[in-house]
Design a binder for these strands. Structure first.
Lengths: 172, 172
DNA sequence: TGGGTCATGTAACCTGTTACATGATTAG
DNA sequence: CTAATCATGTAACAGGTTACATGACCCA
């Protein structure tokens, strides 16, 4: 792929678990090239700007597998949404019930609906070809769907607790 | 609180959704002071190093509430774990079944067990006093517990799919 | 006497975001 | 003719990590 194609893959197929800007992609690709983990070929085109096609090297693939097998990396959650929830004691019960009601929509992993994710998949499967590799991509989609469901249940749980205390002497 | 106390709160009570290093805390506190969102008082102590106690200002609280009510900020997931899952097509089915078996333990939000979270809570509730505010902290713990459960179910789902294809002509 | 807690930070680096910059082709 | 797509990046800034630096007290 070239940088532009990688950008479209992030935008269309990976954004449910990782967003990346064009600027970051080009900068990271420069680093990968410096490390000789990828190699560039200049491809001339008519009626389209020339492309810089990138291919993974042997050392690059070794590094990829080394990273995959390294399970010392801990990927703890870093959630601005939970940080906001934590500080919601600054607002009233009614405001916070409304907050939890609107949260699932605002935090949606697939704002267009998770069914739409499948239609994106067609395009992506064409790029990826190998159905075995596409399976792991599908697993990340499944994660997103289950995550959305969990968020909805969590919000319902919080609303129930807030409604339970609304009529106690527990007001701000 | 002073910087050190804030560090202990992150370490003991917020690390399930946000980790912060001491160095970052002190740097951010400098910025908050520059913006006059917090104000410092020097407190002399015997047999202990002097403290720099910090208090939120009126503008600080306004800014906090402004941030709380701003729901234009989208907090999409950024998960190194899902990125690794995505690339797992590089490994064999058996290796990946093992990967999903060990994942819930490695990705645990509460490595000591979520029951232990409650014992941490006692210490924290003493700090926070206000039971209404403590409730929102508990909601973040509940999130962590539900998230762990979801991860376990997701891993079981992935293992089932991988075992289903193991005996098809779908090998690496 | 040695490790843990209390208490403060700085420096360098890496990663992610926002804004800027350019220019050709093609489809509606 | 105008907006979208293809194609490449740079600069500056913001946020997060790692390593370094200091020093006193307290408990075992």
């Amino acid at each position: 792929m070239n940088g532009y194609e990688i950008m479209t893959v992030f935008r269309d197929s990976l954004k449910h678990f990782w967003q990346a800007q064009t600027s970051q992609i080009y900068r990271e690709l420069q680093t990968l090239e410096k490390n000789e983990w990828i190699r560039a070929t200049h491809v001339e085109q008519e009626s389209r700007p020339d492309k810089k096609m990138l291919t993974i090297t042997e050392e690059g693939r070794n590094e990829l597998v080394r990273w995959l097998k390294d399970d010392t990396l801990k990927s703890s959650i870093r959630s601005p949404m939970l940080m906001k929830t934590f500080f919601r004691g600054e607002c009233s019960i009614d405001e916070n019930i409304e907050y939890f009601r609107s949260l699932p929509k605002r935090e949606a992993v697939f704002p267009a609906g998770s069914e739409k994710a499948d239609s994106i998949s067609d395009e992506y499967k064409r790029t990826i070809q190998d159905p075995y590799k596409a399976l792991y991509w599908k697993f990340t989609i499944d994660f997103g769907i289950m995550y959305e469901k969990m968020i909805r249940e969590w919000c319902e749980h919080c609303i129930r607790e807030l409604e339970g205390i609304r009529h106690e002497n527990f007001t701000d």
